[in-house]
Design a protein around this nucleic acid. Structure first.
Lengths: 169, 169
DNA sequence: ATCAGATAGTCGGATGTCCTACTATTTTCG
DNA sequence: CGAAAATAGTAGGACATCCGACTATCTGAT
């Protein structure tokens, strides 16, 4: 069973929306559709991204860490900063850095002034992977995310407000 | 460390977009922002949903299975159908049903005509949880997803095309 | 100066998702 | 009719995320 989605006849989310209205939950139907769409769209996007990254042996989570370092001044950042910028839990950063370090793409070094902190530094190999993976992602996904330019703009704008309201920035 | 996101000064995605343009990847900058926004928005939405579902001891993945059964004619469906409708891998359904069954919310029964298949049936307790959890989700999240009605409509429309283009339906 | 409280990281555990087998049936078709 | 191909489920493994707990270190208020 190598799985190859059989393409349903009807949009399952539209179907759910219809059922929501039928059950008297009309006031929540649109929101349900929005949240559910977000879940599925995330899955689709992640799947496309991971497919492009596979040859580089990094996942999207690790790629994000790599790029954050790649784009930083000294190509090194404290663990905590990485977590804040990527908006993920501390422990997720520990997990990603463990694997990146094992692959030789980053290295942990002690923080010069704060002995609690750990600096994560991009290695030359890590920088190389970051650049090549970015070229592949830009060409394979980002340059053509499967949405019209106006849709992309609209999507980013809507989600930016959602992120801001959630307290992201 | 109970974690309480420190609200960054600037929007990290806008920041990344700026860096993308600076590095000469302007043609992919918007797409990168769109995909990244999707990832973060998903995380925010999921987190809100899970918080509301916690008291019912079901996760969103299990809630989706419960509702699919709740809204079906006979309140029972074959495993495969559940996977197709929810657009998740077969094994994810096995996983969710295992847990729902352990909690007494659903029961596996043999398919009457196809001995390969397994029917998943909603139990009375499962139906009760489905209804109460839905009431909570509708009131706590879906009725007010943190977006204006027009934003919700726009988001659903954009993502519907993305899902369709990905071959969902 | 000192001690309580905040902060940085890691560890172990629970969940969810996908993938690659592998088994049991059912279908298809030569 | 009988063998190849397709389909339904499960098992085991790799990853990612979050949470709670625990250690080490830094800060700030008394």
């Amino acid at each position: 069973m190598t799985e190859s989605p059989p393409r349903l006849a009807a949009d399952p989310i539209a179907e759910a929306h219809r059922q929501w209205v039928e059950h008297g939950w009309a006031d929540a139907a649109d929101g349900m559709a929005a949240i559910t769409s977000l879940m599925r769209a995330h899955q689709i996007a992640l799947s496309r991204v991971e497919a492009v990254l596979r040859p580089f042996e990094v996942t999207f989570a690790r790629y994000e860490v790599l790029m954050l370092l790649f784009l930083s001044r000294r190509r090194s950042l404290p663990m905590r900063t990485i977590g804040s910028r990527l908006q993920v839990h501390q422990t997720s950063v520990t997990n990603a850095v463990d694997r990146l370090e094992a692959a030789g793409l980053v290295a942990r070094t002690p923080h010069p002034t704060d002995r609690r902190a750990t600096l994560v530094e991009l290695t030359p190999v890590g920088a190389d992977v970051a650049e090549r993976a970015t070229a592949a992602l830009n060409a394979g996904v980002f340059a053509d995310p499967g949405l019209s330019p106006s849709s992309v703009a609209s999507l980013v704008a809507v989600l930016r407000r959602m992120r801001r309201d959630a307290g992201d920035f």
